[in-house]
Design a protein around this nucleic acid. Structure first.
Lengths: 163, 163
DNA sequence: TATTGTTATACTCTATAACTATA
DNA sequence: TATAGTTATAGAGTATAACAATA
């Protein structure tokens, strides 16, 4: 491994393995994430949180309540309101009133939102595939596996995981 | 793997392996990062970029020029100026004039900055170790390996990598 | 002319907390 | 009382671009 001058360079030789792994993981994530953010901005004039919200809705044909989106995206309610306001103004998502609970709204993609998201999702998948293209399959699968365990442990340790 | 209601839930069954891996990786990183940010804030009243900058300086006893920090932390010059202003005001880092180039400053940790950073770094390592504690060694090493390759590829693909 | 660092600006994202309307 | 969503606010982080001093 070469000594590239990035975030990982903050690791010291005596650091614990877990710490070195984390710094490398963080560097990779930041690299990928910043490329995706840049491309979403320059090619689609949108942001990652907006893309994430639309991705959640795409997977939920019946729509999602705003509170559920807040949990999934791990941000507070007010933020979902803000992102939703933008997307609604642009005609990409719509708020629907719930018969059984008049406090709630359910969000859905509009037909236009569905079309727009499809184009973005295809591009997004292309970018990601390209970035992971040369990672050997067995390494890719091993990482997927290991990350699955890691995620379970971390979620289990979270203070609010009993919710 | 259970179907937890988080970011990864935006993956669809037909998604490419690379995409699913990326979403899982992103979820893990976000979980870890947000725990670290919260703890840095509540226990040390500081932020991740400030911690990162100090970590870079800790590893560079001779100090670093601000432009070099900007490259390593992958943010623009102006942001380094801002973070440095804060840390300097609190007496944690100092700007030193360079004899050979009067445009440049070299940043170093002050003695107090060194002490403060040591305490934070020990705590930070404890947090990370705890989060990775139950990940089997062989998985951990496999991930470290795979991420190393991934990082090389992504860096090589970056538009400014020829710099 | 190019580079180093600074300044000013604008925007997104985020958490917090107070609020409303329902339940 | 508790919950769903809204509003207001403040702060961090970021990019962009214009700028001064120096190379």
């Amino acid at each position: 491994m070469t000594d590239l001058p990035d975030l990982e360079s903050r690791a010291a030789p005596e650091d614990h393995h877990a710490l070195r792994l984390w710094l490398r993981m963080l560097t990779c994530c930041n690299l990928i994430e910043s490329e995706i953010r840049t491309r979403l901005r320059t090619e689609f004039d949108t942001t990652l949180p907006r893309f994430d919200l639309m991705a959640q809705l795409q997977r939920a044909p019946k729509g999602l309540k705003m509170g559920e989106l807040s949990r999934r995206m791990m941000v507070t309610n007010g933020n979902i309101t803000g992102i939703t306001d933008q997307l609604e103004k642009e005609g990409l998502v719509m708020r629907l009133k719930v018969e059984t609970d008049r406090r709630s709204s359910v969000l859905k993609l509009t037909p236009q939102g569905r079309r727009t998201f499809s184009r973005m999702a295809r591009a997004h998948e292309r970018w990601v595939k390209a970035m992971f293209a040369d990672l050997p399959e067995d390494h890719r699968d091993a990482m997927y596996q290991a990350l699955g365990e890691l995620k379970l442990q971390i979620v289990a340790r979270r203070p609010d995981s009993a919710r």
